[in-house]
Amino acid sequence: MGILNLTPDSFSDGGKFNNENSALKHAEKLVKEGAEIIDIGPQSTRPHAEFLSSREEIRRIGNTISRIKKEFPEILISLDTFYAETVRFGYNEGVDIINDISGGQYDEKMFDIAAQTKLPYILMHINPSYSTMHDKIRFEDITLEVNRYFSKKVHDLLQKGVKDIILDPGFGFGKTVEDQMKMIHEVEYLGFERFPLLIGISRKSFIYKPLGKSPLDINEETQKLHMKVLEQGAKIVRVHDVAKARETLMRFLQKK
Rank of each mutant, 00 (worst) to 15 (best):
R55I: 03
F82K: 09
S131R: 15
Y149G: 07
K163L: 11
E140Q: 15
N127P: 06
I126R: 04
K153D: 06
S66V: 01
E178A: 14
M133Y: 03
R55Y: 04
K69C: 11
E145D: 11
K136F: 12
G62S: 06
Y149I: 07
Y83N: 10
H155D: 13
Y83L: 04
V162Q: 01
T86Y: 05
D179R: 00
A114T: 07
I142N: 00
F150N: 01
N127F: 04
E108A: 14
M133E: 02
R67P: 02
G62Y: 05
D168L: 01
R88T: 06
I65F: 01
H134K: 13
K163T: 12
R59G: 00
G174K: 06
I61S: 01
S53W: 04
L119N: 04
R148V: 00
M183T: 01
L79V: 09
P120E: 10
F89A: 03
G172N: 06
E140R: 14
K136V: 15
E85V: 00
T45M: 12
H125D: 10
F173E: 00
D141T: 11
F82L: 07
R59A: 09
R55M: 02
H155C: 10
I77W: 01
H134S: 07
Q105R: 15
V146F: 08
I61N: 00
K136T: 15
E57L: 05
D164C: 09
S129E: 13
K136D: 10
Q159N: 14
K109E: 14
G174D: 02
R60E: 05
I142V: 15
T143A: 14
I137N: 10
P120F: 04
H48V: 04
F171S: 05
I142R: 02
N127W: 05
E85P: 01
D100C: 13
M124G: 02
E50T: 14
E85T: 04
S129I: 09
R138V: 11
H125Y: 15
L158A: 02
D96P: 03
D135M: 11
R55C: 00
V177A: 08
F150C: 03
S54T: 07
R59W: 05
P47I: 00
F171W: 10
F111R: 13
R60G: 05
D168C: 02
S102I: 08
S54F: 08
K163F: 08
D96V: 01
K153G: 10
T117S: 14
M183V: 03
L119A: 08
D168Y: 01
N147E: 08
T45R: 04
Q159F: 11
R148T: 11
S66P: 02
